[in-house]
Design a protein around this nucleic acid. Structure first.
Lengths: 161, 161
DNA sequence: CTCACTCGGTTGCTTGATGCAACCAAGTGT
DNA sequence: ACACTTGGTTGCATCAAGCAACCGAGTGAG
C-alpha cells in the first residue's frame, strides 16, 4: 500500500490529502505561490532533501498542480508555475495559515500577513479582505512580513523567502 | 530530525503542518467532527493501523486539539472530543473538501455535502452558507451524503460513517 | 462456571519513505 | 584550466507506517 492513499474513504478531504497530503507537498505549493519557482530556490527555502523535492515536483506536475516550463535550453533549466488547480489551493493554505497564527504565533503576532493587493487590507481566515470585504482568490493577494517576523527570525529560524 | 517538523520555516502554514500534517491526523479530526468518538469507531472508519491511531490520538490530545474523556470506568473506556482549537480546523477541512470536490469528484457530483444546520443551505468553499449568506463555524454545520455518494459506494469504497 | 466477544490499546516485525551526502552533465565566469 | 551554478540522480542509513498477534478487564450466553 502506498503512503499517499487513503483507501476506502468517500470523503473528498481524503481525496485532497491523497494528492497534496504528503510531507512537503503543501509547503512546496506555498513556496511557488510566494514566488520561488526554481528547484534550487525551493530547496534552499524549505531545506527539503533534493531527491524528495524532485519526487514531489514531479508528482505535483503529474497531478496538474504545477507546470514545468523551461526558461533556458541547453542545459535545460526549468521553472515551476501554479496551474489554476494549484492556485485553487489558496483558501486551504489561508485557513492553515490562520490556524497556525492563532495557535502558534508568539505574543508579537503572526510572522506573515496576507494582504489584498488592490486595497492593502489584511486578508482574513476565509480569504476575505477585512478592509473592503471582497472575497479573494490567490492572485488577489500577496504575502508580506507580519509583526512577529523579526521575533521569528531572532528565534533562529531562516529567512527563506 | 523528526518527521513532523519543518525546521527553519517562519510561515504559520508550516507550524500548522507540524501539528496536523502527519498522515491520518487531519482525517482523524474530520472523523471526530463527524461524530466518531471512540477508538474502534475511528479505526474502523479510517482503516488506519491501530498503533498509528493510538499515537495520533495521543499527539492530538497533547496538542490540545482533542480531549479524552472516560465514558466508563473499569475497564476504562474513552471518547475523544474536539476542543475549540480542534473545531477551529473546520475552515481548513472545508477548503480541502471543496478542492477535492472540484477536482476529484465524479460526474455525479461530490460524495458529501456540508449543510447549514439552521437553514439547510449548502456550505461553500469558504464556510459561508450559500442560502442565508452567514459565515459559519464548525458547530453550525453538519455533513450529509451528497449526489455522488452512491457512485462512490459502488466504486468499492467503504461506507465508513 | 466457562467460553467467546468487546474495547482500547501495546508489542514485534517487515516494508517503504525520508534525510543526507556524493556524484553527474552541461554550461558560465575568471 | 578550474571552480561554480543549476537541476537533478544514486546509494545508503534511519525512521515511520502497516499488519498481525497479544493483553487486561469486563460482559453476555449457555
Amino acid at each position: 500500500m502506498l503512503r499517499n492513499d487513503y483507501p476506502g474513504q468517500i470523503c473528498s478531504v481524503a481525496k485532497s490529502l491523497e494528492v497534496i497530503g504528503e510531507r512537503w507537498s503543501l509547503l512546496i505549493v506555498r513556496d511557488v505561490m510566494n514566488g520561488n519557482r526554481r528547484f534550487g530556490e525551493i530547496q534552499g527555502s524549505l531545506g527539503v532533501a533534493r531527491n524528495v523535492l524532485s519526487a514531489r515536483l514531479q508528482h505535483l506536475v503529474e497531478e496538474g498542480i504545477l507546470e514545468r516550463r523551461a526558461y533556458h535550453e541547453n542545459p535545460p533549466r526549468y521553472e515551476y508555475f501554479l496551474t489554476d488547480k494549484g492556485l485553487d489551493l489558496w483558501p486551504a493554505l489561508i485557513a492553515l495559515l490562520s490556524w497556525g497564527d492563532k495557535y502558534s504565533a508568539g505574543p508579537e503576532g503572526p510572522p506573515r500577513l496576507i494582504v489584498h493587493k488592490e486595497c492593502g487590507g489584511v486578508v482574513s481566515e476565509r480569504g476575505i479582505c477585512e478592509s473592503c470585504g471582497k472575497l479573494l482568490h490567490a492572485r488577489d493577494a500577496r504575502q508580506v512580513a507580519g509583526p512577529g517576523f523579526e521575533a521569528a527570525l531572532a528565534a533562529g529560524e531562516s529567512s527563506a523567502d
